[in-house]
Amino acid sequence: MKYIGRLLVYFLGFICIIPVLFVVTGTLMGNTELASVLAPVLAEEGGYAGWHLIPSWPTLKNLIALLLDTPEYYVLFWNSIKVVAAILVGQFIFAVPAAWGMAQSRRKWSGIAFSVYIFCMLLPFQVTMLSQYLVLNSLSMINTHLSLILPLVFSTFPVFIVYQSFLDIPPTVLEAAKIDGAGQFQIFCHIGVPIALQGILAAMVVGFLEYWNMVEQPVVFLQEKRLWTLSVYIPELTVENAGNAFAFSLFSLLPAVVIFIVGKEFLAQGIAIQGTGLEDK
């Protein structure tokens, strides 16, 4: 029974990673092989597209072509890095103090403000897109990276997560600090942030994965192709450049995978802390 359960888990896990496997094997296939398996889809021939989990004629051609012969990939890559890093730094500067304020204030309005925040978090981007566009346009920020960075720096999601982490700090610790003569800022810097660091990092990792993959904002706010981010650009998929597209997808995935491996611990713990925090409430 125990083994059956484990097998089931492995099986489901395998199903989950099948798309990634497709991308990896697709990258290793030559264009001829890709053309033959994808012909029903791309060339609109009859029948169903097939797939080889192990490429018949594996080649690194697509990878090399992407890494050494496609400066476009790097333009997009560094654009993505720039935008995501700026957003995360901005969030650290603005979201953490905001969460601290709302978590620590015992006044009535802070509760109301937090409710409004939650409400904002529930609004999907598509709903606020037009108003965001109008504001950015009047600030002449359309077609700049600022149009992606600025709205997300003040995103509500990290505030929400960090707020939960701050709530978990026992009031007694803060009182002790206060008695020892620490000011509000000192308490925030030396007690609040270190204790809630797991939550903050979790918010950052989740944020990275989310902003790395954002599509709507660049498509709506950017006009020049040179400003695009990785997630927006997928080469027009034809039989000729299918290999190129697969390599591109794989390398768009890689940074996210690396960040996930690096931040896996924080993510798990941050979410766990948050979970207990919610239970306590």
Binding site: L67, L68, P71, W78, V258, I259, V262
Partner: peptide, 25 residues
């Protein structure tokens, strides 16, 4: 974590080198 950190740094170096190489090519 140190393994992951090394991975991150290695990845960054490869990307930076390849950025220049691809531009030259």
């Amino acid at each position: 974590l140190s393994g992951a950190g090394r991975l991150l740094v290695g990845f960054a170096i490869v990307i930076i080198v390849c950025t220049y190489l691809s531009r030259f090519a």
